[in-house]
Design a protein around this nucleic acid. Structure first.
Lengths: 207, 207, 207, 207
DNA sequence: CATGAATGAGCCTTCATTCAT
DNA sequence: TATGAATGAAGGCTCATTCAT
């Protein structure tokens, strides 16, 4: 199947790019290494893609699309009953992010650069928070409470106590375990507990 | 003063390196650009330093040293009376980190790389958490409560709900404001409030 | 033929390297000059070879191989009848060395360096002398004479009155003629006569 | 003594240059290394000398001068009675050359270069051979024999069976012993014997 | 005399990208 | 599609040399 082989090669290139970008950073990555690890001729990369930058664009677009689809999927039949719902959304989100760990690393790095070319982390944050803020708003409303007017405050809170720790956990987890000698199997449970307490702490109305 | 001029040039190179590394990332930074922006001959950089890597090492060492000194200073006459102490330490820490924003960006990026050459973020975390965990332990003890046995749980919590959001805030703040159109003047106050609630949420014993 | 074109470029680079190394010495040679004189892009040199050092290694290996092959070829059907044999071996050896004049210059220079990285001249000497010493031994034995026990003495003699003058002649001949204004056409005949007398002088048993 | 200290520093620079040039070759030598090993500031080298080239010129001039003086000294009261005289001249010459081993290495290398800037080996050869050829001529005449008309033949012979092996022995001796595992203490005696036989072989009138 | 600092030119090597087939 | 070969534009680093004091 020509088409099959075609797609397969293209996808292999993307997959390997993701790994190499994550390991070396975009600037540190070499097209030669991608070609070698993907087992394809270097020129073929330029046949399928417009260059190194284009590879990154494709990967970022895939990331955005998958997260967006996930959110739509996740929220569409969301039947909120407090704790249960939180756990479900949280677990699913974490699982999704873990499958995108490599490109998330790159997104993190690129979002820190001086130029504003890539702000993927904020794009992602917007998508995820958008839904959560909406959900929260719903909850608040359904409980007869007033939604905090200050959207900026909400954004800061959601991003720096929600998005950031979550993505941070996904991309730092391995190096963290490695450095502190913690048990990689238990760390996820620790984080779940920790995240819940802290993030709910942020949402706590009593303070 | 010969020594003064010497130090000045060396320091200028370091200062500019810090900025360029932060803006372009270490791999994306060019020695030529550092030389140009520092107003020095490129070869002079190699007179004072062993190369690009050495520049980074110096900057990281300076970062580590300053944070360590700060922690010692901060903790030495710490008279804990709850809220007051927390605010003071938190504000001072945030201020310190803000002065080191550029090199923190680089440290973040490098700590994400595949190789384990640089783990500065974890080094910093260890230094800061070390003191806090000690402090927390003291508080718990003085309150007649039992310190959570699981150190790993503490580490995860401190790092992902304390260190990470804090450093994350410092290095992402500007891009965050820029992206979400938030008010740069108010964002810090938002974050302070948010951080307190979430981090105390993590430490909350009632849950 | 793709292979032909490939080899051709690679060989052209090697050939030009040999010339430039011989003219400027390895340390004085410039990769830029090699590329220019070979009519290839400088980066192409690094496509075919690992660097400047690797070029030299290739050339040295070629030299060693050719000399070794020559010796095997030359000695395999050696029917020794004194004078005739000496002339034949001497002439053929000289002819061979003359085709390798350039790289022999470089080998000479590198063998003089302080580090023991390259000892090509001694490698060559070993190969050539090995055969001659064997041959001499044969002759002595066949003549009912005793082979001089002292191998060290033989080595010194063969090297400093055989190998060294021979290679020396090949690599110094042109500059010698140029300096002393001697006739380049006659010098070779002079040397042949001279070498024979002196080298046989060394082997003379009557003294 | 200012003047004394002055001379001492200048001489130390020259001495170290000689060593470094011999070890690394002129092109491979670094002014920095010379300064460091001589224990002087690099700029001081440029105070005493016009540059790297000038260092080499000084060393070459010293070499030429010393050899010239030696020859004059050696020949002025030469009372030739065959064997005795040969031994004396040979030994003294070898001793002299050994004291100049380092710079002779450099001279050798530089005499092989493509440009005709340095032909020190031939300069030396001319000086030494000049005297020997004169001496030989004398001897021949005094013996009522005819001097070989062909000066070119003599030059070739003297150079390639006299000068070259002699200088070659001096500069290659150590590496030779190192490579072949020969006894450094005995090698000189071997060479003396070998040289005599071969060089006299060249001069042998009976062939 | 002596030195720390500074510099311009250049060197080896790399790399993203393109070409020819 | 696929590939080996080729290339222009840097990039990090070095080095002989000079300057200011």
């Amino acid at each position: 199947m020509v088409e099959g082989s075609n797609l397969s090669t293209k996808e292999k290139i993307l997959k390997v790019s993701e790994q190499v970008f994550a390991e070396k950073g975009f600037d540190g990555a070499r097209v030669d290494e991608i070609a070698r690890k993907a087992g394809v001729n270097k020129a073929l990369i330029y046949y399928y893609f417009d260059g190194k930058d284009d590879l990154l664009d494709h990967l970022f677009n895939l990331l955005i699309d998958e997260v967006r689809n996930f959110i739509v999927e996740e929220v569409k039949d969301l039947n909120l009953d407090d704790d249960e719902a939180f756990n479900k959304v949280f677990n699913n989100t974490l699982n999704l992010l873990e499958t995108k760990r490599d490109i998330l690393k790159v997104a993190f790095i690129e979002s820190l650069k001086g130029d504003t070319k890539h702000s993927i982390i904020f794009n992602l944050g917007e998508i995820i928070m958008g839904s959560e803020i909406e959900r929260i708003t719903e909850v608040f409303t359904s409980m007869g409470l007033e939604v905090p007017e200050d959207k900026q405050y909400m954004l800061v809170g959601e991003f720096f106590t929600g998005i950031l720790p979550m993505i941070g956990f996904v991309i730092f987890k391995d190096n963290f375990s490695n450095y502190f000698g913690t048990d990689p199997d238990k760390i996820k449970d620790h984080f779940k507990k920790v995240f819940k307490k802290s993030h709910l702490g942020f949402h706590d109305l009593s303070k």
